[in-house]
Design a protein around this nucleic acid. Structure first.
Length: 809
RNA sequence: GAGCACGUGGCGGAAUUGGCAUACGCGCACGGCUUAGAACCGUGUCCGAAAGGGUGUGGGUUCAAGUCCCACCGUGCUCACCA
């Protein structure tokens, strides 16, 4: 067998492809466009990792397939270049994040090229480039101008020792249950801080509605709908006994309000200080302190034992004037609804548990429709009882009438709430886009920086300062400025989150060098929306939702041409270590793609990733699997020695066209694993013939090109006898071969014969046989005759060319 | 607890969407090549001697179920006392 020197051959073609930008996407080409997008990588320390090759290989194959089918394909790549790891590294070493990021980008770009991904590198972007983030800042200002960005008190994890805000993942719990910082293990607590937020809940309805018009898997749509968490209900005011205050609660079950036997308010609720009684004040304060140690998640865990403290105050139920106690408990959180609920223990699981724990009365007010005595708590719908004038009403009707009453009498109204919260958009970090706003003296009013980009300045030290402001505050020369209105001002020192740049990067690929606009409208009209968007499942409720939000807002203010950014979406799976566990350095099961490329070549690796299974699933790495595709590559390369002109091999030709039909359909459906199987089947057939016809071989090479681009290029150049590289003669710019349905048409087919659902025989038929003819052939069969001997045939089902089924008695 | 997936040989998976379950590959066994091994090549490989039986378990619909319906068991992911 000839040795296939993959290293030499792959590097040769890689250099030629990319120096000629073979995979260029042409603006306004008359060809139909396809925009194939895969989430751009964060350029972290080392280089390409296994997740990237899982993410990009199938999209690349598909993009190549479309290109060969006459589409003007845009398959771009860029860098999500701002982020925490580079900054943390800078804090430790003092090396500027721009330096480490640049290094990582260079290494990763080389790796992506080496994998043979057909990227148009002429459109490369990086979010940390001032030419790019100029427009991120400009777009942020659109949110600000339209009232969708504002300063708000938001609860965040605060570490007093580090003088900084921490992310959820930077907070650990020690063995006594106390919250500590990952770095330094200092105490941490929840604290309210002024943060810039983007008001994504204002787009909740549009984000749900838009899902009707896009082609996402149901699981993604459902995940976003659940995350947005729309619920219809009512807000109702309860007056507080003895003082002129009221507490507002949100409920989806106003029909159960006659069963309310207590009120629970969140420990952060501002009304606490006004209503708490002398006797209860110290207990309440201690409880508030404990609650600040917990995350929302811990507070709301289902299995948790209920805790709480009585405030000493009583509320008055506006429907029946009952006086009910007001408690505070951490299972009620401030970030949802009004931060206060009415406790209806007979009809809500959590309220029931709370009432049992603290001996509060339980009053059933809903009777199930079937009149059976329900087990409490009963949270279903039913008929109202013990509810005064509303007795006998059904739950849904009661909700309408009771909400109307509240509205008419001014103590409540209909309300739709969302779980979706304001998106905290400021970070007390260095390595991000500066927020282009300033606080103008003397009154501190906000003015907009008009001279963009507002470039991220150098600082002497990347650690945060002591007053909860970002490292940028260390550069006083930069902080102190003159506002556009000519007054002294201090710049905002918080930066934007990593998500900012990735919210609109797919737009910038369309016009990456435009200094006058974030992108030209005509180019956007040509390319948008994205036809296929490949990414990670972990981004379903973050990046994917955030960027839809940005885009929908831009659409509303006329900046972009379509209501949705991504027409289609698929989440990809992971590659696990050979031990079936997530790859991690500590487990020592990390597979480095470039090491695999060195050992087996990029084509073998690409084929392996295709072959391993469907794109969206997760698999363990298997060294033997890649040996199989490596073998396939070598076998194909070996077969070229048997290519000759004017060879008649009809059977092989038939096998080829069969394969071609299958892989054409499968590639369209992104079923790359079965494509590789089909190629293997054809190659197994090819091994059996002595000589292969050159024409047939050339067709095969073209069909191989999207999957094993290097080998295909090598074989194509060789079989054509090209001496010199010319971009136009690359196999990747050829037309995808067309299968001939005549050749694969089966004249004779064996179909199974079933009797009472069991296969009893097979019969050879002609493809064009009528049902009558087939029936006759079956009747002639000896096995069939034996089986029906003395029985009555009651039914015959014939599915043309598939199956013959008889029912006998 | 909820939502969404999913459950097929020793393993990764396939099954034209209701029509011959286990394609293709790995592994394994035997054989070839080799002084020997690696690599490579070839043959075989669901269980059962057979009749038959087999897609997590139990039921159902159907001429026909891996595929559809119901219940249960189990796994994974995401969210989670959301009022």
């Amino acid at each position: 067998m000839t040795f296939y020197n993959f290293e030499e051959i792959e590097n040769k073609w890689k250099d030629k492809w990319f120096s000629d930008n073979l995979y260029e996407a042409v603006d306004f080409s008359p060809k139909p466009k396809k925009y194939i997008l895969a989430e751009f990588p964060y350029p972290s320390g080392a280089a390409l990792h296994s997740g990237h090759m899982m993410r990009y290989t199938v999209p690349d194959v598909y993009a190549r397939y479309l290109r060969m089918n006459g589409y003007n394909v845009l398959f771009p790549m860029g860098w999500d270049a701002f982020g925490l790891p580079a900054e943390n590294y800078a804090v430790k070493t003092g090396i500027h994040p721009a330096v480490t990021t640049k290094k990582a980008i260079d290494a990763m770009k080389q790796s992506l090229m080496r994998m043979g991904y057909g990227i148009d590198w002429g459109r490369e972007i990086a979010t940390a480039n001032p030419k790019y983030y100029k427009w991120t800042q400009w777009l942020f200002l659109k949110f600000y101008e339209h009232g969708l960005a504002e300063l708000k008190e938001m609860p965040v994890w605060w570490c007093e020792a580090l003088k900084t805000v921490l992310a959820e993942e930077e907070v650990l719990t020690d063995k006594d249950g106390n919250k500590i910082s990952e770095r330094g293990e200092h105490p941490v607590e929840r604290r309210l801080l002024k943060q810039w937020v983007l008001k994504i809940p204002e787009y909740a309805e549009k984000l749900i509605e838009g899902l009707n018009y896009v082609d996402y898997p149901n699981s993604i749509k459902q995940a976003q709908i659940n995350w947005i968490g729309r619920s219809e209900g009512a807000e109702v005011d309860f007056h507080i006994k003895g003082i002129s205050e009221k507490v507002r609660v949100f409920t989806t079950r106003i029909d159960t309000i006659f069963g309310a036997t207590f009120i629970v308010i969140s420990p952060e609720h501002q009304i606490i200080e006004k209503i708490v009684t002398e006797e209860q004040i110290s207990a309440v304060h201690e409880y508030m302190r404990l609650a600040s140690q917990k995350s929302d998640m811990e507070r709301t865990e289902l299995a948790k034992d209920k805790t709480g403290v009585f405030t000493g105050a009583y509320a008055i139920n506006p429907f029946n004037n009952e006086e009910i106690p007001i408690w505070t408990s951490d299972f009620v959180v401030m970030s949802y609804g009004t931060g206060a609920i009415m406790g209806v223990p007979a009809h809500d699981q959590r309220d029931f548990e709370f009432a049992q724990k603290f001996n509060l009365p339980i009053i059933p007010v809903i009777q199930p429709n079937d009149n059976n005595q329900p087990m409490l708590p009963f949270d279903g719908e039913g008929i109202l009882i013990s509810s005064g004038e509303f007795n006998g009403l059904k739950s849904p009707d009661a909700r309408i009438l009771m909400t109307d009453k509240a509205q008419n009498e001014g103590f409540g109204y209909k309300k739709i709430n969302y779980k979706l919260r304001d998106w905290i958009f400021s970070r007390q970090r260095y390595w991000g886009e500066p927020i282009p706003l300033m606080y103008v003296e003397p009154d501190g009013h906000i003015e907009v920086e008009t001279n963009l980009p507002l470039v991220l300045p150098d600082v002497p030290d990347y650690t945060p300062t002591s007053d909860a402001s970002a490292p940028l505050a260390r550069n006083q020369e930069w902080v102190n400025t003159i506002s556009p209105s000519g007054k002294p001002a201090k710049r905002e020192t918080n930066t934007m989150p990593n998500w900012a740049g990735s919210c609109w990067y797919f737009i910038r690929y369309l016009d990456p060098n435009n200094d006058n606009e974030f992108a030209d409208m005509e180019k956007m009209k040509y390319w948008l929306p994205v036809d296929r968007y490949f990414g990670g499942a972990e981004h379903t409720n973050m990046h994917l939702l955030y960027s839809r939000f940005w885009y929908k807002f831009f659409y509303d203010i006329g900046l972009v041409p379509t209501p949705e950014p991504y027409q289609w979406r698929l989440n990809g799976g992971l590659l696990l270590g050979a031990d079936g566990r997530k790859m991690s350095k500590s487990l020592g099961n990390v597979v480095d793609p470039m090491t695999v490329v060195e050992n087996y070549g990029a084509d073998a690796l690409r084929l392996f990733i295709c072959f391993i299974g469907p794109y969206e699933d997760t698999y363990p790495w298997n060294e033997n699997g890649i040996k199989a595709t490596f073998r396939l590559i070598n076998t194909i390369y070996d077969i070229r020695n048997r290519v000759s002109e004017n060879i008649e091999n009809n059977e092989l030709k038939k096998a080829f066209h069969k394969m071609l039909k299958n892989i054409t359909d499968m590639t369209q459906d992104l079923k790359m694993n079965t494509v590789v199987s089909e190629i293997m089947i054809f190659i197994n057939e090819s091994k059996k013939v002595e000589k292969i016809d050159k024409e047939l071989w050339m067709e095969f090479i073209k069909s191989l090109a999207p999957f094993a681009p290097y080998l295909a290029e090598e074989l194509w150049q060789e079989v054509n006898g090209f001496k010199e590289w010319k971009k136009e003669s690359s196999v990747h710019l050829q037309k995808w071969p067309k299968y001939d349905p005549e050749i694969i048409k089966m004249d004779q087919i064996t179909i199974p014969v079933q009797i009472n659902g069991k296969v009893k025989d097979e019969v050879l038929i002609n493809a064009l046989d009528t049902e009558e003819t087939v029936k006759q052939k079956v009747m002639e069969s000896e096995k069939f005759q034996n089986a029906v001997e003395g029985k009555e045939i009651i039914k015959i089902i014939y599915i043309p060319n598939k199956i013959f089924s008889a029912v006998i008695k």
